[in-house]
Design a protein around this nucleic acid. Structure first.
Length: 366
DNA sequence: TATCCGTGGTA
DNA sequence: TTACCAAGGAT
């Protein structure tokens, strides 16, 4: 139940609150200032639902600039949901490598197959139906419904949460206020142009109502913003306390033989699920270096490379010791391993951590 | 409900 | 350098 916007006009004037934000002002701003993005239709047109869905999955917790090349690559290689559904999962995972949150790629493929094989290649138009698809949550369902079908929905992402928190000076931590933020955002929606409106809210958050240094002088909502009226834009949204990021350690084993390196595939779930790796120990806070070699993929004259590879994940930091060894040709068979020619290592779709390992071991440059 | 899940840019 | 954080979802 939204609180701030529920005030009567009498209550507004008595408390000197700013006037209610005007959706028409935002749409007018959007018509002049909208960003030109690869997945976005020309003004007045609707985008291909497949392209909208693909972009929204990629954009989950990921910056626009990081997504652009991946989106264009996917669309060129798999121009339709049927094409994506027909692709081997392994190829999709490889193409996703480097973008992060790899469960998204697995769900993307599963969703494409569901739409292609069980829905005749047609994306559902209803928010509730979209919500049932793998990898599609409340945000993405609303975004696809609004942007691809102009359904009466407002997609609430981090940008919109920030904009709404400022407009109504919602001073509870954002984690606690999720429901209020979402419901309040719905009350702003105009009767028409839902797709443009939801994109306008996100553009506003990305370019004007930014986390730091918001440009209130450019904001179509400035006269209706409670945080701006108080001169406290930077105080909203209220941040939750940050949690400690523990340091884990581990080791990776770079085994080469006859111009090839040994790789394996990680289990489908969990950290870097389904991605290629150099055989590694588990990553643990209480990692014991003296027992690392028990995880080596083969008996060899392992030598520890100087220094460590450092990487930061969402919830822990990692320092990885690299062991390297070379076996005499030809490459032997190793259980759960595969020999990949060094010349094709860059096509393997290594996650960034493993790319760092390859660089440190001198297998690839840069 | 809280935790797990990547990466790269920015101040 | 450190800290923050960007078009969240699954379990």
């Amino acid at each position: 139940m939204p609180r701030a916007p529920a005030k009567s006009s009498a209550a507004r004037s008595s408390t000197k609150s700013p006037p209610r934000p005007d959706p028409r002002a935002l749409l007018s701003w959007y018509d002049r200032r909208r960003r030109d993005l690869p997945w976005r239709a020309a003004p007045g047109e609707r985008a291909d639902p497949y392209a909208v869905w693909l972009s929204e999955i990629m954009l989950q917790q990921t910056t626009v600039e990081a997504v652009k090349p991946y989106f264009l690559g996917f669309l060129a290689r798999w121009p339709s949901v049927e094409a994506l559904a027909a692709a081997p999962l392994e190829e999709v995972m490889k193409a996703w490598a480097g973008l992060g949150y790899y469960a998204r790629a697995r769900n993307l493929h599963a969703c494409a197959q569901q739409v292609a094989f069980e829905r005749g290649g047609v994306f559902p138009r209803e928010e509730d139906d979209l919500l049932s698809l793998p990898g599609v949550g409340p945000y993405t369902a609303a975004a696809v419904a609004a942007i691809a079908f102009d359904a009466p929905c407002v997609a609430v992402d981090g940008n919109v949460e920030r904009v709404v928190a400022r407009l109504f000076a919602i001073d509870r931590p954002i984690r606690e206020a999720k429901r209020e933020l979402r419901e309040t955002a719905q009350t702003l929606r105009p009767a028409a142009r839902s797709g443009d409106f939801t994109q306008a809210l996100m553009d506003l958050g990305a370019t004007v109502c930014t986390p730091r240094g918001p440009r209130c002088d450019l904001c179509p909502f400035a006269s209706g913003c409670e945080a701006a009226r108080r001169g406290e834009t930077e105080r909203f949204p209220v941040k939750a306390q940050k949690l400690e990021k523990p340091l884990r350690r581990g080791a990776a084993f770079v085994l080469t033989c006859g111009g090839a390196a040994l790789l394996r595939t990680r289990p489908p779930r969990g950290l870097l699920g389904g991605m290629s790796e150099f055989p590694s120990t588990p990553f643990r806070v209480d990692f014991d270096p003296s027992r690392a070699q028990a995880h080596a993929p083969a008996a060899a004259r392992w030598r520890a490379l100087p220094g460590e590879v450092e990487h930061v994940f969402t919830h822990f930091s990692l320092r990885l010791t690299i062991f390297a060894a070379t076996l005499p040709a030809p490459p032997p068979h190793i259980e759960n391993g595969r020999w990949t020619p060094l010349a094709r290592l860059s096509e393997e779709g290594l996650p960034t951590l493993m790319r760092k390992v390859a660089v440190r071991a001198g297998l690839i440059v840069e």
